[in-house]
Design a protein around this nucleic acid. Sequence first.
RNA 1: GACCCUUUCGUCUAACGGUUAGGACACGGCCCUUUCACGGCUGUAAUACGGGUUCGAUUCCCGUAGGGGUCGCCA
Length: 446
Amino acid sequence: MSVRVRFAPSPTGYLHVGGARTALFNWLFARREGGVFVLRVEDTDAARNTAAAQAAIVDGLRWLGLDWDEGPEKSGPHEPYYQSQRGHIYDAYFQKLVDAGHTYTEENGAVRFRSPREVIVLPDKICGDVKIDRTQEPDMTIRRPDGSYIFHFVNVVDDIEMKITHVIRGEDHIFNTGKHIELFRAFGAEPPVYAHIPLILNEDASKMSKRDQGASIQYYMEKEFLPAAVANYLCLLGWSPKDNREILGIDEIMPLFLWENMNHSNAKFDLEKCRWFNAQYLAKLDAPSFDHLVIAWLLKQTPSLPGTDDPRLVSALPLIQPKIKGIPEVAEHLIMLFDGGAPVAEDARTKLAGQPDIAKRLETLKTHLEAVPTPDWKADAIQEAVAAAAKELAVKPGALMFPLRVLATGQAHGVDLLPALEWLGKAETLQRAAARIPQCLPASAS
RNA sequence: GACCCUUUCGUCUAACGGUUAGGACACGGCCCUUUCACGGCUGUAAUACGGGUUCGAUUCCCGUAGGGGUCGCCA
């Protein structure tokens, strides 16, 4: 029998990283096995269900590159894939249970499933054999007085109807599985193979909630993370190739995505490390793709950043690419390159203040830069000018680089200096120097 | 509270019962660099605790402690 798995989120308004990882693992397993990945929207709670919430899930999955074979916006043999539209199917299954005498009705109209009250052993692919004692549990409600059905019931009915063979989901569902198995048996259906994956927690081991930074896939989309980097990082939470490799493409992960390579304990989410993965992927990106990402991000920013409408924008991006861990960091670099009037940063001024003879150095530097003929204004010539200034001042050229950086960019950190100066051009560089020298002098002198 | 899962550096994780317990993020140092970074090298840092089993335990078993999960007419 061919593998069929599903990701069954309820539209709560965003796609949680935990949910995204669950989807990713299901997808990986389906693709590895040459099976089918189904997306089923569990939107039985009409009050919480909105179009925007649906979109957040669909967009998030698409962004991560997790394409589904059956589901919303895609046809399939088990349509519809929204639980809210499957009422007639649930009614029919419900009737089977009633006819078989598995149910009883409460005074208020709610219907419960009469539990066989057995100890169930769940053969979980990740957790091993898990004993679930159902003998003392109250009977589960499967239908509310208003006729709507409860999660456990619809979940099992759909898994039967959609011929799901493997259920890969968060460990928080492990006890629900006892209830689910009871229902499968009552319907005379074989339960699927279960694999409960450990949870993703915050740094402080608390549950990640919408508020936590990075908890929503939306966060990464807005910041223009590279989906491959995020997926790579997510895979490493609860799974490992066991050979010290970390930067792995999805195609490298797939063949190694085996149950025995799964971890059993919860993982704490580390946004820093996720950023590091992003930086690794960003550095390897080709220029056109990088430009594309930056521009997409720039267009979303209000107010717009310096350089956004400047024809020189694309020529500046190669200077920036190797310097950043995330696309939003282009902001500070664009200010450096395009906003000559930006004031000198506090940390730059402080660092500069620690250097001796600063006024003389800055002036000497400026003088030598002015001496470079405009047509010769290239990195090499600029370097020679700095060297000449250094010689006159009897200091090492390196001592002048930082001050020069501050004059040109107003910042203590940033792009490669010489290429940046070449990019700025002589006139602009000198104009900036003239404007910033006063800001760089000690307060007593100004 | 009951039940289930879980426990290796701060974090993610490696280690057929025999390793100086490895890698990565973060943090510090050094080198490279005429600046800022990248990079390279390097340092600090872990087998929760107590019992077994074994010649030998991070690894297997039991207990304790910690963490997480579940105990809905939420999903």
